[in-house]
Simulated assay, not measured.
Amino acid sequence: MKKKLSRTGLIEQMLNYKYIYLMLVPGLLFLLTFKYLPMYGIQLAFKRYMLNKGITGSPWVGLENFRYIWTEPAFWRAFKNTIIISLMKLGLGFPIGIILALLINELRIKKYKRFLQTIYTFPHFLSWVIVSGIVFNFLGNTGAFNSFLQTIGMHKINFLMNKSIFRYLLVYSEVWKEAGWSTILYLAAIAGIDPTLYEAATVDGANRWYKIKYITWPGIQNIVVIMFIMTVGTIMVAGFNQVFNLYNEVVYDVGDIISTYVYRISFQQAPDYGVSTAVGLFNGLINFILLMLANAFAKRFGNSGII
């Protein structure tokens, strides 16, 4: 049985590995500053915020802010859009990363493999401001695609103001930007699979499909499950930066999500910080519930999960 590490022994161990622990400091400071300290403001969800009294001096109103958002049609519209857009991204974007990793892994020319990895990963490092500019220049009313349609005598398609197209535009632009980045983790997991398994499969006459099915997929399955759980845990986020830079008033009905709704009621009209905090808290609670359900679902089918 392993002995418990004493306080003195723990201090000695930390001193022995002081440089490794120092590397943790920036990350811990980031978490403390941007994740834990802001929790102090959660109490605003149960208060009517008054600027002259501050957070602690503002009067308590109980669940009044929550009652308001539950009767607000714009909130439920944003809630519905958040769920729909996130599920569309999950349904298309999540498998694409896995499929892309499996396809890249099957390439035999190493230089070409590295070249494709670089090409597919590069869009991740572009901000949504830049990507939205590319989208506007290509698919906007006066963009390259519509100019081409006009040249060949066809009618323009206003992608950014078309309610039936806008959600798909969000999904496909997200996939284009992030699919390559998500392959990195899967390729790293594939690289950790014992190569002798592939050699033995070759000797037994297995083709590429059987190697993927019986060696590669089981080897990355745990990573896939963990990534799925974490992705489900962010369903209520739906990509504020992307939507904010691409949407407009015409497509609010199909494109407005909770985070953009909170932004508008906080900064684009008479601010009500109690209501916006209540929306954020409700959003976080739903995310937490979805995360726990996804984790329980993974365990139900024999995977370890993350908790």
Rank of each mutant, 00 (worst) to 15 (best):
A101L: 07
L32N: 11
P73Y: 13
W76A: 08
N105R: 03
K89L: 06
E64M: 09
P38H: 13
T82E: 10
I104R: 01
P95G: 10
Y49M: 07
I99P: 00
P59W: 10
T33A: 13
Y40P: 00
W60L: 14
F46M: 11
I104K: 05
A78V: 06
E72P: 02
A101K: 00
N52D: 12
A78K: 00
L44P: 02
M39L: 14
R48K: 15
G97P: 10
N81K: 06
R48D: 15
R67P: 00
G93C: 05
A78G: 07
G62F: 05
I84M: 06
N81T: 05
A101D: 04
N65Q: 10
I98V: 15
L63D: 01
T71C: 07
N81W: 03
G97S: 14
K89D: 09
I55C: 08
R67V: 02
T82C: 13
L44T: 11
G91A: 14
Y40E: 05
I55K: 00
E72C: 09
L103D: 08
F34D: 08
Y68W: 13
N65I: 09
I104H: 04
G54A: 10
T82P: 13
R48F: 10
F75G: 03
I98M: 12
Y49K: 07
V61L: 03
N52E: 11
R67Q: 10
L37H: 00
Y68G: 02
R48L: 05
K35T: 12
I85R: 07
I83M: 11
E64G: 04
I69N: 02
N65V: 12
L103P: 01
I83D: 02
A45N: 07
Y36A: 05
L100T: 09
F94R: 00
K53I: 02
R67H: 04
G41T: 09
A45T: 03
S58H: 05
W60H: 10
L32Q: 06
A101N: 00
Y68C: 04
G57D: 09
F79Y: 11
K53G: 02
P73R: 03
I42W: 08
I84R: 01
F46A: 11
E72Q: 12
W70F: 15
F34E: 07
G91T: 05
P73W: 06
M50F: 09
T82W: 09
Q43S: 12
I69M: 15
Y68N: 10
L90V: 13
N105A: 11
I104W: 04
R48Q: 15
R67E: 08
T82L: 13
I96N: 07
F75V: 08
P38I: 14
N65K: 08
W70Y: 15
L37T: 03
L44E: 02
L90G: 01
T82G: 07
A45R: 01
K89H: 04
T33W: 10
L100H: 00
N52I: 01
M39A: 06
A74P: 05
K47V: 02
T33S: 13
L103F: 10
N105L: 09
M88E: 12
G93E: 12
L37S: 03
N52W: 04
N105E: 12
T33I: 15
G97A: 12
K80H: 10
